[in-house]
Design a protein around this nucleic acid. Sequence first.
DNA 1: TTTTAGATGTGAATATTATCACATAAATGG
DNA 2: CCATTTATGTGATAATATTCACATCTAAAA
Lengths: 240, 240
Amino acid sequence: MYICRVNLTYYCFKVKTVTKNVLKNSLKRIFLYRACLYRLKMMGVEKVFSYTLAEEAGVTPDQVRKDFSEFNIRGNKRGGYVLSDLLEKMEALFYRNKEHNIILMGMGNLGLALSKYSRFVQRNMNVVAAFDIDPYKQKARYDIPVYGMDRLKEIIHRFKVKVAIIAVPEISAQQVCDELVRNGIKGIINFAPVLLKVPEDVVINNINLCDELESVIYYVHNQIRNEGLKNIELLYGDMK
Amino acid sequence: MYICRVNLTYYCFKVKTVTKNVLKNSLKRIFLYRACLYRLKMMGVEKVFSYTLAEEAGVTPDQVRKDFSEFNIRGNKRGGYVLSDLLEKMEALFYRNKEHNIILMGMGNLGLALSKYSRFVQRNMNVVAAFDIDPYKQKARYDIPVYGMDRLKEIIHRFKVKVAIIAVPEISAQQVCDELVRNGIKGIINFAPVLLKVPEDVVINNINLCDELESVIYYVHNQIRNEGLKNIELLYGDMK
DNA sequence: TTTTAGATGTGAATATTATCACATAAATGG
DNA sequence: CCATTTATGTGATAATATTCACATCTAAAA
C-alpha cells in the first residue's frame, strides 16, 4: 500500500504485480462480464452474485471472483455486488470517464462504416478525423473530416491522438502503420489482413474478418461445439 | 491408425484425441502462421524452418512444431517445411477447397461494407444474399441480392447455407439469431454488441468493435507492451 | 443483541499449457 | 557409403491458469 499526495489530496494506492498474460485473460473476461451486466441491467437486475454472473458468462463463480480480485474490484461480503457499482468500476478501468481521440486510416467500405459507427461516441471514443489518399474523398462530405496524409502529424498533435484504426488495403497497411508510429501513435487496431511490424512499445490488435469467418466454418465442419464434450477426436486422412 | 475403403480407394486415417481448448489455441496460432507464411511467400521464400516461422509469428520454435503436430502437419526431418506445401495443408484444414455459402443479416453501414468485402470471395466464401427489413434496401441494387426475412428459409435451403453474419442493430440481434438457428444455421459471426444465446450445437464468434478498441486503449494507457517485460505492476487508486 | 446463514476474497491444490530435451531421420560432405 | 550435422516430432518437465476450499465478513433472522 502506497500513499502519495497530489494537490493537497492524499491518494492511497495498492500495488499488485501480475504476469501480463493473467491480465490479458482476465481483461478479456472483464469485457464479457460487462456485456452480461448490461444485459442483466436491462432486465431490471440491481444486484448480482458471482454465480449469477458466472452463469450468464459461462464461466465458474470462482473465476469471476478471481478476475475481480485481479482488478481490485470488490463486492460486499455476503451481499454480492451492486450492479451499478460494478459497471462503474469497470468503466473506470477503461478510462471511460476520459475522452479518447482516435483517427481512422482509410475511407474505403470498411472505413466508411467505422466512421459512422455511433457506438464509439457513446463510449467516449471520438473518431476525430479520417485519412485517405483519394483526393475525391478528401473533398466529399462525410460525418467526419477526411484529410490527406500530409496533415497526419498536425491532427495527431492537435487532438493528442494515441490510438488509430487501420482500414486501408493490405498493400499499403505497413506503410501507413510506420507513418502512424513515426508520429507517436501507441495503439493500433488493424483490419488489413497482414501482420504489422511495430516497435515494442506499440500495441497492435489485429482483426482479420476472413480468419474469423474461417474459424467458424472450421468449427461447424468439424462439429466442434462450444459447450458439452471436452475432448474431441480428429481424423487426419491420407490416401493410401 | 485406421484404414477404410471408399470407392475402391483405400484411405488411411490417424485418430487423435485432443482437448477442445488445445485445439482452439493451436487453431488460432495456425491462422497466425498462415498470415506469416503468406508474407514470407511474397518475399520469395520457398522453404521455412520452425525457427523462421517462430521468429515471424513471435512464438517459440517448439510451439510451432507442437501446433503442427496437433494438426498432423509434417515437414522434412532436417529439411524444414516447403512453404507451398505448408500453405496447402493449412488451406485444406479450413476446407478452402470447398465452397462455402454465407448469408449476411442486416444491410446497414457495416453490412454494406461486408457485402463488398472481396476477400471473402477470394477465399471461397461466398456471401450469397443479404437480408434487411427495410423495403427500400430490398429494392435497391447492391453487389448481392437483398431480401426480406420472409425469404430466409428458402435461401438457406437453396444454397445449403450453414454460416451467417449478423450485422443488425443490437436490439434485434437475438431475434435474428433465433430465426437463423430455427432455419438450420450452425455458425454465426456476430457484430452486434450483445451476447447471443444459442443452442449448444451452434458456434458463435462475437466481434465487438468497441471492446477491441477499448482494450487497445487500456493497454496504451497502462503502458502494457506486447513484448518485453513479462510482469507488470498495476496501481489501484483510491482517494483517501 | 446475538446467532446464523451465505457470499466474498484468496492461498493452496489441481489441471492445463508451453517449453525443454532428446531420439529420430534426412541431407551433406568426405 | 558412412559419418556428421541439423532440424523435426514428441514424451517429459516446467510454467501458468483455473478450481477448490476455507477463513472472513456481513446481512438477515431470532
